[in-house]
């Protein structure tokens, strides 16, 4: 479950205060698939970054399950993020110096508590149909394959929440549908999903649609 209470992020832009996210409250239930939609610059990414703990909110709270994520220290947030949040960022996010298998295993490498992960990594690679590319480097993968590997990597540590920021951007419709089906399956298996998109044709995959405009929920 993800609960956001009165979340605000204020930036200084051109020496003037600017609310990228303004007093946003929302709740996504366990296993629910919520799509946040809005135009570019509406505040989707800032909202997601705050939920993931990558930006400190100016005010407001974020709860993941029962834990008040925003009350944690930076170090505690890192551990919590590693174990409970899978985050797929907007652009190519694979690490070019590591193989696909190492990329998928990275959340486990960074974790102190996760010790068994190889089998799951191979299983995830098989599920996305890229098992034969385990030893390849990201430069040899297509855009759609990279996006699917990023999602598989986000799921390695079995997080409570998957945050996917514009996962279909720059993908053709065929690849975009594959990615959306994959995320739908993840949600069906019990993971809470929060996805941002400005492409209306993919909103059907979500259980709930949240519209955001100028940093506020409509």
């Amino acid at each position: 479950m993800v609960r956001v209470e009165n979340l605000t992020k204020n930036f200084l832009r051109n020496q003037r205060d600017f609310d990228a996210v303004n007093d946003v409250s929302l709740q996504v239930k366990e296993g629910e698939f919520a799509a946040v939609t809005g135009h570019s610059g509406s505040g989707k990414t800032t909202l997601f970054n705050m939920v993931a703990g990558l930006i400190r909110p100016t005010s407001g709270k974020v709860f993941i399950g029962d834990a008040e994520f925003t009350a944690m220290t930076e170090a505690q947030q890192a551990v919590f993020r590693n174990e409970n949040i899978g985050y797929v960022v907007q652009s190519q996010s694979l690490l070019n110096n590591f193989t696909i298998l190492d990329n998928i295993c990275m959340p486990a490498y960074l974790s102190r508590s996760v010790t068994e992960f190889k089998e799951r990594a191979v299983q995830l690679l098989t599920e996305i149909g890229l098992a034969e590319l385990a030893g390849e480097y990201p430069r040899n993968l297509s855009g759609g394959e990279i996006r699917r590997v990023s999602i598989a990597r986000a799921m390695l540590n079995r997080p409570q929440v998957l945050l996917a920021d514009e996962p279909t951007s720059n993908l053709d419709s065929d690849n975009a549908r594959k990615v959306m089906s994959m995320i739908r399956d993840i949600s069906n298996s019990g993971t809470t999903v929060l996805l941002s998109t400005h492409e209306m044709e993919y909103l059907d995959y979500a259980d709930t649609v949240i519209k955001i405009k100028n940093g506020r929920i409509e």
Binding site: L54, V79, R81, N82, V89, P107
Partner: peptide, 15 residues
Amino acid sequence: YEFGVLYTLGASKKQ
């Protein structure tokens, strides 16, 4: 960006 990605995966600043 590479380090930013590692943060999103749960790396601490110490790591």
